[in-house]
Simulated scan of single mutants.
Amino acid sequence: MIAVPSPAELPLLRALERAAGEPFRHLDMAPVADDEPPSLDDLSRYQRAGRALAAYDVRRPGAPADGGGPVGYLLWEAVDGCTHIEQVSVHPDHARRGIGRALIDRAERDGGPVPLTLTTFAEVPWNAPYYARLGFRVLTDAELTPGLRAVRAQEAALGLDRWPRVCMRREPGVRAAEYGN
């Protein structure tokens, strides 16, 4: 089940983000694993605007009727006429169950019939290669819009360019291959 998280669940998203960052440590990307999750103020801003989505695992045996707490989340915003995925994270205990794909597909529906964009690590298996399986393609430098250039500049200022990064785009209506991701 995917829904806009309640204000009370926003601290749970921060904990989820910390857990989702841990696998980066195994790729010698400890600064990414140690990065501070979005603040409660930032999460609240996305939540109030309806641009925060949370996934709840209701398939889990013994799960509460309400699905329990979030196991994944996504934040999006409009950037140059596209639905830009600012963050998507799934708790490692719930990876490879289609949660990320479902969050992205829901953001596409909520954002309207416009392309999806995101920025990500090029060489991390659960980043660019994963998004390519979901129908995203890497943009060339010439294809970057002013808004995406600003996003990339902010990422560079945060030091994320220590590892190769790319901007990606998925056209409306393109669906993921069925990989169980």
Rank of each mutant, 00 (worst) to 15 (best):
G68P: 00
L103R: 09
E178H: 14
D35M: 13
R45Y: 05
G112L: 14
R109W: 14
I104N: 09
A102I: 05
R106Y: 04
A65S: 02
A176F: 00
R14Y: 00
A132I: 10
F136V: 04
S39L: 09
G173T: 10
F136Q: 02
H26V: 08
A177S: 11
A132G: 04
A122E: 15
V71F: 01
R162E: 09
V166F: 09
E123Y: 04
V88K: 12
E178F: 11
A176M: 08
P113K: 14
E86D: 15
T145H: 13
R51W: 15
D66E: 03
C82N: 11
G135W: 08
A3V: 02
D105T: 03
R169H: 06
C82E: 14
R48I: 01
L139Q: 11
F121H: 03
E77P: 06
T83E: 08
T140C: 02
L103Q: 13
L148I: 13
R96L: 05
R14A: 10
A8M: 02
D161T: 12
V90N: 05
D28S: 13
L74M: 11
T140Y: 05
S44L: 10
M168Q: 14
D80V: 07
E86K: 15
A95K: 11
W126L: 05
A153T: 07
H26M: 11
A156D: 12
A153G: 07
E86S: 11
A150V: 07
A19H: 13
L40A: 01
T140V: 02
P23Q: 03
S44T: 12
A54T: 03
T83I: 10
T119L: 00
L148G: 08
G69R: 15
D93S: 12
